[in-house]
Nucleic acid binder design. Structure first.
Lengths: 280, 280
DNA sequence: CAATTTTTTGAAAAAATACTACATTTTTGT
DNA sequence: ACAAAAATGTAGTATTTTTTCAAAAAATTG
């Protein structure tokens, strides 16, 4: 918990003098972090050791350490927490909240991602003869994005957002093929069927999906991320951003693995796009 | 500017010894804020006054004050600094860098977004009879994502990633239609043509694109965001994430504008998806 | 309600830490 | 190669924080 919150919450557990210190700090945290222990003690009308004891009570090493913690809690202009959109938020408010929620999701996705699994996924992808990305509904755009990225690697890539096409694609798949299934919940029936079908042909199935979900169980390799729940009435937003970033990670791992010469090729692809643009 | 960024940026302006200090701090800012000036000096293999001078050069009052500033810059999640992927980064390193870059992009996109323009965009969208999202190449997935979101609003929505279809769609467009064009650079010739075509039918054209770009000039309303350059050889990553988040913002603004009853409908759409899932 | 124990508090000394002045070294320009 | 300027370090000084310990206040008990 944020240090300033902690002070407010535990206000009751302090002694009389310590509470004076707490109140002075709450009144003006900015003053507090720029004062010496002596100045703060004077402000609160207590002795210096009291201030020091107050700091220790908040699980800090001492006064300087306490100032550090307090400074950090002030720095988080808006803590990424509990930023759900309200009924009566204006454009400014909901814009900020949504961007901040997205950032918080990425943070938590990053921390929960297993980099060893990422590495194995890159292994599998670099060895693939052909790569397919499948996603339905909201995950379709992620699959499309993935195709767009891997397409530049001059590799057979395909993407489908249609169950029939996925099926057909799986039937002709070989053991040299890698199929990447994208599903936030991991509980979409048709996706589970697809995974099953793909494995019957010994294709490699990588799932970007929820841990321990039915779909995850069907995959050869699972990449899962903890993304704070989309608690609102609206629609899944956070998860797609995290998935897209994961695709970026895979694509980057892929190019790094392929080495320098390979990246020269990429430059050429990028160059070729310039011709479709107007001059500056 | 964030203190840690400042150190990275001004690395060249430091003297030899001061750079040693800077490097030690960049290598482990957490260690830095928990060390005394003596400990840090030893780590950097310089004298204490050098560390002190280094702090002053960064416009702080001295070492303790510097630690405060550094602590604050660390508090904002992760040091979003110069996190370009290196040739010899391992999976752990490049995963973190990419996620952090994405977060930094969102932060900067958020700060550069004009919320008044967002509000006007929401106005236009709520009044539209029909909404189309167009995007080519990398922006296609964003357009698809947008369609997926707005589709739930029980509205005529379409999305195309194909110039011919876009053209056809524009020709039959009316003045009650809103067309959202997504292009990172704003310099893709065919998109500019499309915008022109749409305006001939008095359709409303909203551009999610670069400020002052040729495409921006053709639009009735432009939503632009400053996203740190994709400096690497690879592909555009940051911009798409920002665009997607912007779509989330628009969708949210849309639902808020439509009021409570409308959101009840959304719940039903969400509910209907559950039937396609396996039980927990 | 007084006696005893426990807790809280602050003065002062001790320790740790940061800063200043100045000397020395290194770099830069001629 | 020399002088001037800049950078760096040594050593002493000042500041700040922490510890110690004794007094005061509050709580507990007979």
């Amino acid at each position: 918990m944020n240090t300033l919150e902690k002070i407010t919450t535990n206000l009751d557990s302090f002694s009389k003098s310590e509470r004076k210190v707490a109140e002075v700090i709450i009144a003006s945290p900015q003053t507090a972090i720029h004062s010496s222990i002596a100045a703060l003690a004077k402000l609160a009308d207590v002795s210096e050791p009291t201030v020091n004891r107050f700091c220790r009570r908040l699980d800090t090493k001492g006064f300087p350490d306490f100032k550090l913690h307090l400074a950090q809690s002030l720095a988080n202009g808006t803590p990424y927490v509990n930023r759900n959109v309200d009924e009566d938020d204006g454009p400014e408010a909901y814009t900020n909240k949504i961007f901040e929620t997205a950032m918080a999701s990425l943070e938590s996705a990053k921390n929960s991602l297993d980099t060893a699994a990422v590495n194995r996924a890159v292994d599998l992808l670099t060895q693939a003869n052909k790569i397919s990305f499948f996603g339905l509904g909201a995950s379709a755009s992620v699959a499309q994005d993935a195709m767009n990225k891997f397409f530049r690697f001059n590799l057979p890539v395909s993407y489908f957002d249609d169950v029939v096409m996925m099926r057909m694609s799986c039937i002709v798949a070989t053991e040299e093929d890698v199929i990447v299934l994208i599903s936030h919940t991991g509980r979409t029936k048709s996706m589970i069927d697809i995974a099953h079908l793909a494995k019957q042909n010994d294709s490699t199935v990588i799932g970007i999906t929820a841990k321990d979900s039915p779909l995850a169980k069907e995959c050869n390799l699972v990449l899962s991320m903890e993304v704070p729940e989309d608690t609102d009435v609206f629609m899944p937003m956070a998860s797609r951003i995290a998935q897209m970033t994961l695709i970026d990670v895979l694509a980057t791992g892929f190019t790094l693995r392929r080495g320098l010469k390979f990246r020269e090729n990429l430059k050429r692809v990028k160059q070729s796009l310039i011709e479709s643009r107007v001059d500056r």
